[in-house]
């Protein structure tokens, strides 16, 4: 079969030195990503090891690493979950507004405005939360404590400065809003046009069309995006560091002055002045934060990727 041999012999590429070097370099860069991620875990573990193996009374707080990290982990989860509960519904409605309600000509500009929220550095959110938002919440917090005080979240007594968990949650919600909106918008943009038109052809109002055609299609993107937002909120540092007045207790009371800190904020507050075993302890808490955010992000990406496999595009 000389005919079939000849073309394959011609088509087989000659490996040039330049090709090898370039292929090697770019493959190396790809593998470097994996090494860096593994390295983050490995180096943090190595530096955290002295604290993990130290006798409990030598760790700051005097009761071991686990009891040092636990209240911080509680504060981290509390602030992130409530921030998500505020931000996720808002982000979905904003994505709906930009995609389906805003005038066509303005839609892109309005979407860009929301993206600008993500461009503001977190330290500026911290300064803003401290100066503007915290004083503004003192009055409403008092009202909450008076009228809804039977709910443990609003038990009070109300903090006089407003540097409460509630303000931290609100700032976090603002900060994770743009990332959730962006992912959900991307999903809404991929909704098959025929589904929308079919719903409209059946006489559906705009809202019925959204509920029948758009929201079911975007559901897993909404879940994935929310988890991405949760990951951001868990790891957000400076805004919480500046806004929150910390006393270290474990409480769900959002409006009092006795707030649990978060892992990230605790590291930012303590690290610059720490030496010796205190540094190792802080790195151990950083390792916990890394593990939690890593798990949340992996789950989020898995959910988002699963959707793209079943999207109308293929």
């Amino acid at each position: 079969m000389p005919l079939s041999e000849t073309p394959s012999a011609v088509a087989r590429p000659r490996l040039r030195a330049g090709d090898r070097v370039f292929a090697g370099l770019s493959t190396g860069a790809g593998l470097l990503i994996l090494f860096v991620l593994a390295g983050v875990a490995a180096f943090l573990l190595v530096e955290a090891w002295p604290a993990l193996t130290a006798p409990p009374e030598e760790v700051p707080g005097g009761r071991g690493v686990a009891l040092y990290v636990w209240p911080l982990l509680f504060g981290t989860a509390l602030s992130a979950v409530f921030a998500l509960l505020i931000a996720a519904p808002l982000a979905v409605t904003i994505a709906l507004f930009v995609t389906y309600y805003a005038p066509r000509a303005l839609a892109q500009g309005l979407g860009y405005l929301i993206d600008l929220l993500a461009a503001v550095p977190s330290i500026i959110y911290g300064l803003w939360g401290f100066t503007v938002l915290a004083p503004a919440t003192v009055g409403p917090s008092g009202w909450l404590a008076d009228n809804l005080g039977f709910i443990p979240l609003f038990a009070g007594p109300v903090s006089a400065t407003g540097r409460t968990m509630l303000v931290a949650i609100l700032v976090l919600a603002v900060m994770i809003l743009p990332i959730i909106t962006a992912v959900v918008r991307e999903a809404f943009r991929q909704v098959p046009r025929l589904h929308e038109e079919a719903a409209r052809a059946l006489g559906a109002t705009q809202w019925e069309m959204l509920r029948m055609a758009v929201l079911p299609f975007g559901r897993s993107a909404i879940i994935g995006a929310s988890m991405l937002g949760l990951g951001r909120a868990l790891g957000e540092t400076m805004a919480v560091t500046i806004v929150l007045s910390v006393s270290g207790g474990v409480t769900v009371n959002l409006i009092s002055s006795g707030n649990p800190s978060t892992i990230a904020a605790d590291i930012a507050l303590q690290f610059p002045e720490s030496t010796g075993l205190a540094v190792n302890t802080l790195i151990a808490s950083g390792l916990v934060l890394f593990a939690v955010t890593f798990a949340v992000n992996m789950a989020a990406r898995t959910v988002i990727n699963r959707r793209s496999e079943f999207s109308g595009a293929n």
């Binding site: 983050v40 530096e47 590291i267 950083g286 934060l289 890394f290 990406r301």
Partner: peptide, 16 residues
Amino acid sequence: VMTGIPSIVAGLFAYA
């Protein structure tokens, strides 16, 4: 997944 690494963890990584 790497885009979601908290910035403070990136700092601790460099420090470690």
